[in-house]
Design a binder for these strands. Structure first.
Lengths: 220, 220
DNA sequence: TTGCAATTCAAACAGTTGTATGAAACTATC
DNA sequence: GATAGTTTCATACAACTGTTTGAATTGCAA
């Protein structure tokens, strides 16, 4: 056990490098150089490169799910167990968007790492990823309670599209800035969240007026 | 020059393998085995692995852009130069969705390769990708003409979200099927296209009724 | 201090990668 | 049918990968 210093230095360096450059071209030698530890330390502390990645992903995955669920639970408690749809969706996409966008200096390495993991499907992560399904189902259930008149199919498409807009905005933020010549403000995270949530709510509630809190149209 | 047989065998094999397994873990030896040619043939005909990938991407990129623009032009000619917004968006996302979804046996290798290229950002492709911006600008211009009352910012966000939903649906189609326990029919490509287009149009036209063809709400 | 386990380290290992080489086989022209 | 140019082939190469090894060092208990 001892200090754990080396161990966590490796974890931090690996997460930073993976978040920045992707899994494809980050070698163990890159990681140990960044962490200022010996090459063999990785295999000593983690067994293998894959197990290092897996531990990183499991840790962050649990943390993200916890963050999302905490936001959902908080809303359920103060909303009498049935929070409106926009609050649910905000709990789903908010944590990731806040972690990955906004001023460059305060973006979270953890969130950026998770986005990498959701893009580059490397074997050790692929094996774990199935748990995410169960996590998403909890949000689908909450959405169903908020929109009892919608079919399951509509619920799932709404959930899917909300994640689509959030993730794509993170992945292609640079391109969107370039394309729009800066007219789309990628630093206004809250604005983006409202935009994504508003859009998803609109799709989910179109044609029916069932929610007490109607879709917030076109954020900001 | 001669037969070009080897050359195109390599291109076809490489495209198929990259589309299936991504750039990360496809080696030159995998490619030449699939193509039944000698290892040295790749460097002889293309110079390097990167140049092979680049040629593949340039070819397919041009083809996809041509397909999209052809659909747009066709609509412009029969629509008097100003086609409605949903037709424009259909021309943008239709080709890729049709190529990547639907019955597994008739998916296009080319389209799946392009999705891979849009996900895994490998150096030779990254260098070329800037051209895509110019291509997307043409669609932004058409959208502006269809929705003259919308700000540029709204136009770009609409374009961005349309691509987000299309690409994410392709990338995560398996997860969506699993999550929804088959309730979301990923084989109904036209239905999906209408869903994506309908959603984007809704976001773009919310609050204002300016288009002759209002958003088709909730596809199918 | 002595002893023992945990940790670090430099070095080497075996495997795989993209690329280069030079001879062999082919193709077409004269 | 000899010749010149193109294409194929087996093989080798150098660089890089993750992993292992065994000795050195450290930290701590007796």
């Amino acid at each position: 056990m001892a200090s754990d210093q080396t161990r966590s230095a490796i974890l931090a360096a690996a997460e930073r490098l993976y978040a920045d450059r992707g899994f494809g071209d980050v070698t163990l030698r890159d990681i140990v150089a960044e962490a200022n530890v010996n090459l063999a330390a990785v295999n000593y502390h983690f067994g293998s490169k894959d197990e290092l990645i897996a531990e990183l992903f499991v840790t962050r995955s649990i943390a993200l799910n916890r963050e999302r669920l905490a936001e959902l639970k908080a809303a359920e408690e103060q909303g009498g167990g049935r929070p409106p749809i926009d609050v649910i969706l905000r709990a789903l996409v908010g944590p990731t968007l806040r972690g990955c966008l906004g001023p460059a200096n305060q973006r979270s390495t953890a969130a950026r790492f998770m986005i990498r993991a959701s893009i580059e499907s490397v074997p050790p992560i692929r094996r774990i990823k199935n748990r995410e399904i169960d996590h998403l189902r909890k949000f689908a259930a909450a959405m169903r309670r908020a929109l009892p008149n919608r079919s399951d199919e509509e619920i799932y498409w709404g959930l899917h599209f909300a994640l689509a807009m959030a993730h794509h905005t993170i992945r292609e933020s640079e391109r969107l800035t370039k394309l729009s010549e800066g007219k789309c403000d990628l630093d206004d995270v809250d604005g983006i969240i409202e935009r994504v949530v508003g859009m998803a709510v609109m799709g989910l509630t179109a044609g029916k007026a069932e929610s007490k809190t109607p879709a917030k149209v076109a954020a900001r």
